[in-house]
Simulated assay, not measured.
Amino acid sequence: MSDPARESTRRRLTAKQADTVERLGQAAVTVLGREGFAGLTVRRVATEAGVGAATAYTYFSSKEHLVAEVFWRRLVGSPCVAHQSDDPAERVIEVFGHISKPVADEPEFAGAVTAALLGRDPDVEVLRLRIALDIRDRLTEAVGADADPGVVDTLELLYSGALVSAGMGYSSYDDISRRLATAARLLLG
């Protein structure tokens, strides 16, 4: 099986190409911190990364695609939680905390991820599906293989809604973590 960190939405990557994509991702986070999502462009990111704009567009169809790809790479680069508890609610809370880490400390990036994932770019749609499946798998494992699929659906909706709420600035990530923990306990007992 191939390494997801070496896969792009658009094509498989050589080691050199993967390095370029990594530099573009780091540059995107830097530009986001400085300019915000409104000021982010693939051209600005390319300049920050020291590559040509045409090269950047080889890998990313839009700024939304770029931001979604950075989030995806952070998510899959963060291995699944090794659960310490037999309590499904506690395991779900661990997963919520773990899958929120890729954005929790960077509010500009978090807001950009929310905006990017809501976009209609076909490359973003592919990533949105990959992200959703990864999160579903993590939550299903936490709840237990014999869990009611409706419970996992509800947990996914809780997480998605929480990220949108935080990304829009309605709640802090600390507040979201507490609220997700409360919701998991209410749902799972």
Rank of each mutant, 00 (worst) to 15 (best):
residue 186 L to H: 03
residue 155 L to P: 02
residue 115 A to E: 11
residue 129 L to R: 10
residue 50 G to K: 06
residue 148 D to E: 05
residue 52 G to T: 11
residue 75 L to K: 04
residue 106 E to V: 15
residue 107 P to Q: 02
residue 45 V to F: 03
residue 93 I to N: 04
residue 99 I to M: 06
residue 18 A to L: 03
residue 56 A to H: 12
residue 128 R to G: 09
residue 81 V to P: 09
residue 20 T to H: 11
residue 56 A to C: 08
residue 153 D to G: 00
residue 21 V to F: 05
residue 77 G to K: 03
residue 161 G to W: 11
residue 100 S to I: 07
residue 143 V to Q: 05
residue 175 D to P: 12
residue 5 A to I: 11
residue 41 T to Q: 15
residue 160 S to E: 13
residue 180 L to S: 11
residue 51 V to E: 03
residue 9 T to Q: 14
residue 88 P to I: 10
residue 91 R to M: 12
residue 45 V to E: 08
residue 5 A to L: 07
residue 42 V to A: 02
residue 147 A to T: 09
residue 58 T to Q: 00
residue 29 V to N: 13
residue 85 S to E: 12
residue 175 D to T: 14
residue 108 E to N: 14
residue 16 K to F: 12
residue 103 V to C: 13
residue 175 D to F: 13
residue 124 V to N: 11
residue 125 E to C: 00
residue 44 R to L: 13
residue 54 A to P: 01
residue 41 T to S: 10
residue 105 D to F: 12
residue 47 T to Q: 13
residue 26 Q to R: 14
residue 34 R to G: 15
residue 55 T to V: 01
residue 78 S to A: 11
residue 52 G to K: 01
residue 49 A to G: 01
residue 136 R to S: 02
residue 175 D to M: 12
residue 1 M to R: 02
residue 181 A to R: 14
residue 44 R to D: 07
residue 105 D to G: 15
residue 179 R to A: 15
residue 2 S to A: 01
residue 29 V to W: 07
residue 6 R to H: 01
residue 87 D to V: 09
residue 188 L to K: 14
residue 118 L to I: 14
residue 138 R to M: 01
residue 111 G to N: 06
residue 37 F to I: 06
residue 145 A to P: 01
residue 163 L to H: 10
residue 132 A to E: 10
residue 111 G to M: 14
residue 73 R to D: 14
residue 165 S to P: 03
residue 4 P to R: 09
residue 90 E to A: 11
residue 31 V to K: 02
residue 15 A to N: 08
residue 186 L to M: 08
residue 73 R to G: 07
residue 31 V to A: 09
residue 102 P to I: 13
residue 120 R to F: 03
residue 22 E to L: 04
residue 1 M to V: 13
residue 35 E to W: 05
residue 49 A to M: 01
residue 6 R to C: 10
residue 132 A to M: 00
residue 183 A to P: 01
residue 164 V to F: 07
residue 93 I to S: 00
residue 124 V to F: 05
residue 12 R to P: 11
residue 77 G to H: 01
residue 97 G to Q: 04
residue 175 D to A: 12
residue 173 Y to K: 14
residue 112 A to H: 00
residue 139 L to S: 08
residue 45 V to S: 04
residue 28 A to C: 14
residue 11 R to H: 15
residue 176 I to R: 08
residue 8 S to K: 02
residue 33 G to Q: 05
residue 161 G to Y: 02
residue 26 Q to L: 09
residue 33 G to M: 04
residue 124 V to W: 04
residue 153 D to E: 11
residue 118 L to H: 09
residue 127 L to W: 10
residue 176 I to H: 10
residue 5 A to C: 15
residue 13 L to K: 04
residue 51 V to R: 03
residue 117 L to T: 04
residue 146 D to E: 12
residue 65 H to V: 08
